[in-house]
Computed example of a mutant assay.
Amino acid sequence: METLPLYTEDAHGVSEKPRWATPHPRPSRNTMIWRYFVVVCFLICYYLLLRPTEAPCTSLNCYTPCDTPGCAAPDAPVDRFTPFEPEQSQDENYELDYEQPKTNQRPLATTSDYTQTKVPLEAHIMSKCPDAQDCLQKLVLPAMEQISDKVNFNLSFIASVSSKTSEIECMHGPGECIGDMLMLCAANLPFPPTADESLLPQTYPRTPIIRSLGFANCLINDFSQIPDREFVHQCAMEHGIDFEALNKCASQQGDKLGGGGQGEPSLSGLALLRESALRSQSVGARISCTVRLDESVWCIRDGGEWRDCAQKGDGANPQALIEEVKRLWEERN
């Protein structure tokens, strides 16, 4: 039997090999290295673009484990709070100038602000008022769980401010003034925390509302302990608030408003409380707690009862507040 030839000869006697009999030349070493490099780059880009990301936490922890029937701006003289001097603070139970216990904290993440037009939402309270506790825990916090990204929330305080001196009068005494300052300081501290505020630019971000409002709720949940040092420290640790910076702000003697950044006075709880109290006076908020939505009174908690609430009294329902905020949000964005 004849076998197939591996190649044939043409008429001129020249042999010609078939195509499959001639192997392709092997790529050079440089070519192979370049191909591997392209494959590795593709895999890295695929991982960076398609890997899952962790969703940010947006939960407000409401801690639940005075007797005053109502908390309104005083018409008669009440206990006055005067900025305390360092030498007189040793015997006062409301002094905050103490050392911070050494603890290990997880790094705090940065946040970014939305560019949309947010709806103004404000709660005017006194830090040692039972009605303020009910107001935050029964209305404000449940609503903020769902609308924190849609509102420009502000926690303001009710107190009597002197236009001639640095004295501030609080209905429930000096301890309440310190409680007010602690909550204001927590909301205005630089975030992430920094060791030297004097080096910060004026536009440096401040504490996210999820943290500062959670801290305020922690304090007001057991307001009789304000401003006990261990109690304040525990609440600060639970919500990622820099306690050393908080203590410095609340103990600041300066009465000039500033953020502690470049060319600004140090962050002062006293100045923040003065500004906040004047803000409450300017909008006519005298009762703790008064909730205002879009610059109008939404609901008032007074003497353990809701009154003057929007939507024929249904404004005390968190769901009603949520729906109204969403409606206003959709109109403006």
Rank of each mutant, 00 (worst) to 15 (best):
T103R: 14
H124Q: 02
T58K: 15
E54M: 09
G70F: 13
R307V: 00
D228Q: 14
R286L: 00
S280W: 04
F37H: 14
E167T: 09
V38Y: 10
Q137V: 06
F157E: 01
L4Q: 11
S127D: 01
Y94I: 12
P27T: 09
D294V: 03
R274M: 02
V232N: 11
R19V: 13
Q105L: 08
G263C: 03
M126D: 01
G261E: 08
V325G: 10
S156M: 01
L155V: 05
D91K: 12
P69R: 13
E330F: 04
Q253V: 00
L199H: 10
I147Q: 08
C249E: 06
F191W: 15
D134W: 12
Q137E: 14
F223L: 06
G173L: 07
E324V: 01
G70A: 15
I33H: 14
A143P: 08
I220A: 07
E264P: 01
W306R: 10
H239Q: 04
I220M: 10
C289K: 11
E16T: 15
T290V: 06
R229W: 05
G261L: 01
P56D: 04
A132K: 09
S212E: 09
V38D: 09
I44W: 12
L270E: 01
G254A: 05
V297I: 14
I44R: 13
L189K: 06
Y46D: 12
C71Y: 04
P318Y: 03
A109C: 11
R35W: 02
R51H: 15
A285V: 07
F243A: 10
H12P: 00
R35Q: 12
P227R: 10
I168K: 02
S28I: 00
Y63R: 13
D113G: 06
Q133K: 15
Q202C: 10
I125R: 09
E330A: 14
D113A: 14
P83D: 05
M171Y: 11
P27Y: 03
Y46H: 12
K17H: 06
T3H: 01
N154D: 12
P193A: 08
Y63D: 10
E275P: 04
P227L: 07
G263E: 03
A76M: 06
L155W: 02
E330H: 11
I178P: 01
L273K: 11
G269Y: 09
S282Y: 01
P83S: 10
G269V: 08
G175S: 13
G315K: 07
D180W: 03
C249H: 09
P130F: 05
L278G: 02
